[in-house]
């Protein structure tokens, strides 16, 4: 009952907390051309753990913004306008905060839970692995 596979089906969180699960889900998303959503999700987690006193932190915030939000890619399309405006403004004013991407991450995660995660659990990639 506590096998990795049993955990993967429990929640998106438990899938992403497992190395093999996250890897397989990433392979699936690459094929579906939406791997950026997962990379963004992990980037948000990584960013939250960064030290605000580290001079790398504002540069990482800017890199996340440029790579996923400013470019009208899939992550940008999934986010609410207000969420994007808030992040843009935070970066412009250099108001760097550990939780500045939290709302954006939640929006992407909700869509991932509703769509990609369920598609993954019925995909041939998953079924072959099982």
């Amino acid at each position: 009952p506590d096998s990795p596979l049993a955990r993967w089906t429990k929640s998106l969180h438990s899938l992403l907390g497992d190395q093999d699960g996250a890897h397989l889900f990433r392979t699936f998303l690459e094929r579906e051309k939406c791997v950026d959503t997962l990379d963004f999700w992990f980037a948000c987690n990584g960013f939250r753990q960064m030290d605000l006193k580290d001079n790398k932190t504002p540069r990482v915030a800017k890199a996340i913004y440029k790579r996923y939000i400013e470019n009208y890619g899939i992550v940008s399309k999934q986010l609410k306008l207000a969420t994007k405006a808030y992040i843009k403004d935070s970066i412009k004013r250099q108001h760097i905060d550990s939780v500045m991407f939290d709302q954006a991450q939640t929006e992407v995660q909700t869509l991932m839970e509703e769509n990609a995660y369920h598609m993954f659990l019925t995909s041939d990639i998953y079924l072959e692995y099982v």
């Binding site: 980037a43 753990q49 960064m50 790579r67």
Partner: peptide, 20 residues
């Protein structure tokens, strides 16, 4: 000095699950 891409990659990797 690290490029923005390297910093981003490092940030993503730091959050990925590690082998148990």
């Amino acid at each position: 000095i690290d490029s923005e891409d390297d910093l981003l990659q490092e940030c993503i990797s730091s959050a990925m699950p590690k082998k148990k």
